[in-house]
Design a binder for these strands. Sequence first.
DNA 1: CCATATCGTTAAGATTCGTTAATAAATCAG
DNA 2: CTGATTTATTAACGAATCTTAACGATATGG
Lengths: 217, 217
Amino acid sequence: MTKILMIEDDAQYASLLSTYLKQYNIEVTNYEDPYLGLSAGVEKYDLLILDLTLPGMDGLEVCKEVVSKYDIPIIISSARSDLSDKVIGLQLGADDYLPKPYDPQEMYARIISLLRRYKKNNSLEVPTYRLMLDEEKETVLLDSVILDLTAAEYAVLKLLIQHRGATVSKEQILYDSEVFQQGSDGSLAVILNRLRKKLGEDIQLKTVRGVGYRLLS
Amino acid sequence: MTKILMIEDDAQYASLLSTYLKQYNIEVTNYEDPYLGLSAGVEKYDLLILDLTLPGMDGLEVCKEVVSKYDIPIIISSARSDLSDKVIGLQLGADDYLPKPYDPQEMYARIISLLRRYKKNNSLEVPTYRLMLDEEKETVLLDSVILDLTAAEYAVLKLLIQHRGATVSKEQILYDSEVFQQGSDGSLAVILNRLRKKLGEDIQLKTVRGVGYRLLS
DNA sequence: CCATATCGTTAAGATTCGTTAATAAATCAG
DNA sequence: CTGATTTATTAACGAATCTTAACGATATGG
């Protein structure tokens, strides 16, 4: 479990990101007050996401302090489109910069990239999954090998990967994926049976009785 | 000007690729010694092409080191047909894999694809897709090579390229392209079969069952 | 004109894949 | 434990699509 410390005064924004990252087994702890956050034990976290547009204080000062005291990768974000924030932030020792509003997916990509760079120093466990979705090519990779899937199989597995770790309801699968014409629960059961055979025993597609299905790990 | 760092002990091979890529405004700098190459300033380059079959050392180790230290897209190549090289390389963080001997054209395509994915600031003026439509000349280019197509094949492929990534219905194809006289779904299937043969496995013309066809990427 | 080549079309058989159905297995309520 | 409900498993069906070969119209060239 990767743990991220977030200092962001917009609680809604923080919650959104937290929910999104949970599916990748990343835990986000947010503090609206920077000094409350810093006193929470920075060393316990793997990465810091710092909002520069904090109310009544200079986020750059916070950044400067963290860099001098701790060895932790920092991503700064800012609602100000001011480019100087980026330059100064990076000069102060931040590792990456993302202007708000940002796509959670984009933030996730930066996080992974950053953690990988830091990996050598503090032997961090970067979440790498055996099952990866390549939406552009409409394929799924198992251990970097392209799986041979039908349209329905891909549609179902795509949803499960996108909500990795969470349960996806049968209704959502049948509705969201436009592959099914008269799709019934029975059809879905067959597709899942075929998927399980193709994925092997290591990849677990768990059924949540009465609700739907769920991809573990 | 896109700059590529290459680590390849076969100088002749490196020279060949360098010459080929020059026409696309891509500059290749090769080092036969990996550690000499890495010390040349990786951050100055847009992409790294790494040969795994280096004399007296493990290319995978080099790959691992680069991934941990730099944020640069990596294409690994290997003369060993060993598949595990590919899997391990990609798991280590490489972005693409090409077995030797490879076609320079193929390598070019991979490079363009990778640079696009990284969306870096390098403004590429080169064609973004492997498959390009030249309406004026009524031709289609695959990796800058003119394809030899019949009228019907061109008409269908033109529509698919114009709607790249989206599904084009069979009705629309039969109606829009005035090549077909009594064109039926059967005719279309034959044309698509011929197109697929001419395009090769890399270009995917996907069928959307019950609807039509679709050109991926 | 005849010979040849090209190319859209047709037809027939093979294959694919979502679906249904029948039975077995698993899970839950009382 | 018993019965009911849900899901798994397996086989089979049927429509859609693929594949292949061949046909025939048209064009080309001598």
